[in-house]
């Protein structure tokens, strides 16, 4: 979570609000913030740290681990209409890479701004060409994009 907190300004600049959820109480969230996270991130965690001790939210999002009574590492990107556009769920030992989340936010924002007329190819980064799906693009993607263009 400290990685997300540390990149909060970048996320805010993209108009993204952050919400974290775990089965810890909000009291424990406070202690974690005040005693550890504040030493990793200036000013501490700037977003809501929600508490889901009974796992109800985790169940609804498919990240509840019944055996351990915890929530798996799950990341959901929700658009301004409340639609889930992307999700990633991982077992606990491997952390997320926030740069990929930010890339996906930027890609989904391009698609949304185009009202669905544009799509971003594999490996797309901001500034790269986008695809405009339509009759002329069928069989012609190779003219505008190849796998070797992925950085």
């Amino acid at each position: 979570m400290s990685a997300v907190a540390d990149n909060y300004a970048r996320l805010q600049a993209l108009g993204v609000e952050v919400l974290s959820v775990s089965v810890d109480s909000h009291f424990v969230h406070k202690m974690w913030n005040d005693h550890e996270l504040v030493k990793m991130v200036d000013g501490g965690v700037p977003f809501h740290m929600a508490s889901d001790q009974a796992g109800n939210i985790g169940r609804a999002y498919g990240v509840w681990d019944e055996g351990q009574g915890i929530e798996l590492r799950g990341r959901f990107l929700i658009d301004p209409d409340g639609i889930v556009q992307a999700m990633e769920v991982m077992t606990p030992p491997v952390g997320r890479k926030l740069a990929e989340t930010i890339r996906q936010v930027q890609a989904f924002q391009v698609v949304r701004a185009s009202k669905g007329t544009e799509a971003t190819p594999a490996g797309w980064m901001p500034g790269d060409p986008v695809l405009r799906p339509g009759p002329d693009l069928v069989g012609n993607v190779w003219k505008v994009w190849k796998p070797s263009m992925e950085k």
């Binding site: 999002y61 990341r75 990107l77 924002q109």
Partner: peptide
């Protein structure tokens, strides 16, 4: 509430627990 953020992009992150190591 999730509804507090209606009209905005939301990054919703679940994690295994406070004071875990990753």
């Amino acid at each position: 509430k999730l509804a507090d953020f209606a009209g905005k992009w939301v990054l919703l992150c679940f994690y295994p627990g406070d004071f875990t190591f990753v």
